[in-house]
Nucleic acid binder design. Structure first.
Length: 290
DNA sequence: AGCCAGGTTTGGC
DNA sequence: GCCAAACATGGC
């Protein structure tokens, strides 16, 4: 990887990174929007633009001191070739990782990851993105970039004060009180930053204390919002594909059992693998049955 | 029109 | 601990 920085623009080349896949199509993040061939969002209270180039990306604006933050966000400091080697004994994993060379697991801010995945429960991707947009549009801070108005996700301070009825009117349904009560708990001292430094079990046990956060949402937040690469979210797709491709797991009595067994089996980077398998199955890149 | 969505909560054994 | 039903909404 080569990094060049000048005039507030960061140019990263010699990397495998598919912006459309990572920011829009892989259902990891719901806060990016596409405009004229570039991707826009607000990250850590600053508007940001990412554009795909030949063998890398251009990011603007970036302070020189923040360069590493973006490498971390896009997970460009990790060797994904190594990931395939690590799981050489599982042909389906090697195949999935090699099939999506531009896919990376984003390291997103914990708070917005938490909000998005509370919204994701029993919901479809199109509506998760719509509700995420509604939340930022009504309660987020305003930013400008390239004559585009962008809004951040609401802070816990703001969200904790929103009347439940207002969110229900906007179409949040039964998830409305989950969002508000979670914001109130974070405001009341629930330490999201601490989750990064706890071990997986401990951090998971903490997260499920939040309203609207069950096992699966907790694992998504841990994987994509807390740097826990071993967190292994199991949704309908992952449940089906793991049973289909891993005979060892076929007889797991419940989703909880399967989640634990799969995480145990795949180890330190289970969650990274999960993203590749999930995308392959969801987009029918690898058939679930033969 | 009806099924389904990157599930969670609640209340019953 | 395991199971079922309720849950709001709208995408397809």
């Amino acid at each position: 990887m080569k990094t060049q920085w000048r005039g507030g623009e960061l140019l990263l080349t010699g990397i495998q990174f598919d912006a459309q896949l990572c920011l829009m199509d892989s259902a990891q993040s719901f806060v990016w929007r596409e405009h004229k061939g570039a991707y826009y969002s607000v990250l850590h209270d600053a508007p940001i633009r990412i554009k795909q180039v030949e063998d890398g990306v251009r990011i603007y604006p970036v302070n020189e001191a923040e360069i590493e933050d973006y490498l971390i966000y896009l997970d460009l400091l990790r060797d994904y070739e190594q990931l395939a080697l690590e799981y050489a004994e599982y042909p389906c994993i090697v195949r999935a990782v090699r099939m999506l060379p531009g896919l990376r697991v984003l390291n997103q801010p914990t708070w917005e990851t938490l909000l998005c995945f509370i919204l994701s429960a029993n919901n479809n991707v199109a509506r998760i993105r719509k509700l995420t947009w509604l939340l930022s549009e009504h309660y987020g801070a305003l930013h400008m970039l390239d004559d585009l108005t962008l809004r951040s996700m609401p802070s816990p301070e703001v969200l904790a004060q929103v009347p439940e009825a207002d969110l229900r009117k906007l179409g949040f349904g039964y998830r409305a009180p989950f969002l508000i009560r979670t914001a109130q708990m974070v405001l009341g001292g629930f330490d999201l930053d601490a989750l990064r430094h706890m071990d997986y079990e401990q951090a998971h046990a903490q997260l499920v204390l939040l309203p609207g956060v069950g096992d699966k949402v907790a694992d998504c937040v841990l994987l994509m919002g807390c740097g826990h690469a071993s967190a292994f979210p199991v949704d309908v797709w992952v449940d089906r594909l793991m049973r289909a491709w891993f005979p060892l797991l076929r007889d797991c009595a419940s989703r909880t059992k399967l989640q634990q067994a799969a995480r145990q089996l795949l180890g330190e980077h289970a969650g990274l693998v999960q993203q590749f398998l999930f995308h392959c199955a969801r987009c029918s890149l690898i058939p679930l049955e033969e």
